[in-house]
């Protein structure tokens, strides 16, 4: 078992004119491979900022973020893009699917940027869609799918590159309760299969599915506890 995520004294300060706002005020977290972690916190607590940093969409003002052995603090935009592409699969609250493309083309997108040849891309996109139970919806555009199905397409897109980390930002925020259960069930399955998942939410019952809960408030981690026995990777 190795540490996939290491945050070490991470601070993030936003500056708007002369006003400074410290969104993260010194975060130290270690996440092992195979863990299923939920980050909970009210809005304005800094959890979105944390999610951006974890997703390499932003860099810390201070401190170190090591993802799978790579220190990301010193990287430029292009290198961060490469890390996102290779190591991280994103699932967003608003799905963020491109409406003009059929499901398999949406899933294929990260592979295009990874430089995977065309024939192989289609094959892997189909496999990922089959993995989330949408083998019969390959050619449907997002508009022709239910919310739950759209989020499954997004999960397939996150999985298609076989990333080290699955990062989900309020993945059930736009779903009804049945679809939410559906998607969270999928996350459970992926966790059981050994995936590392970091999920950000403000709903306690969503967080309850995860093995470990981190509570963030006012830019600091206020609580870090294991809920169930042990992370899947430790079994």
């Amino acid at each position: 078992m190795s540490a996939l995520i290491e945050l070490d004294g991470v601070r993030k300060t936003y500056r708007s004119g002369s006003v400074e706002f410290e969104a993260l005020r010194g975060i130290d977290i270690t996440v092992e491979t195979g863990e299923y972690v939920a980050v909970i916190g009210p809005s304005g607590s800094g959890k979105s900022t944390l999610m951006n940093l974890l997703g390499c969409l932003d860099v810390p003002t201070e401190g170190r973020y090591v993802l799978a052995g790579d220190d990301t603090s010193e990287l430029d935009e292009a290198a961060l893009a490469a890390i996102r592409n290779r190591r991280i699969g994103f699932v967003f609250q608003q799905f963020h699917l491109l409406a003009s493309m059929p499901a398999w083309r949406n899933v294929e997108l990260p592979l295009i940027y990874a430089g995977v040849p065309r024939a192989q891309r289609r094959e892997r996109a189909e496999a990922a869609l089959a993995r989330v139970g949408l083998a019969d919806r390959l050619a449907n555009r997002p508009g022709e799918l239910s919310g739950g199905q759209q989020q499954r397409v997004a999960v397939a897109r996150a999985l298609v590159t076989e990333p080290d980390l699955l990062l989900a930002d309020e993945p059930t925020g736009n779903l009804d309760s049945a679809s939410s259960r559906d998607v969270l069930g999928l996350f459970d399955e992926l966790h059981d299969a050994g995936r590392t998942i970091v999920l950000i939410t403000h709903e306690p019952d969503v967080a309850a599915r995860a093995g470990r809960n981190l509570v963030i408030d006012d830019g600091l981690i206020t609580s870090d506890r294991l809920r169930s026995a042990a992370p899947a990777g430790a079994r």
């Binding site: 935009e77 292009a78 893009a81 490469a82 994103f90 940027y113 897109r157």
Partner: peptide
């Protein structure tokens, strides 16, 4: 803008 943001999140470098 959203499409560009998504493509970037999925690994498109600024040059791409």
């Amino acid at each position: 803008v959203r499409e560009i943001g998504l493509r970037k999140a999925l690994g498109a470098a600024p040059g791409v």
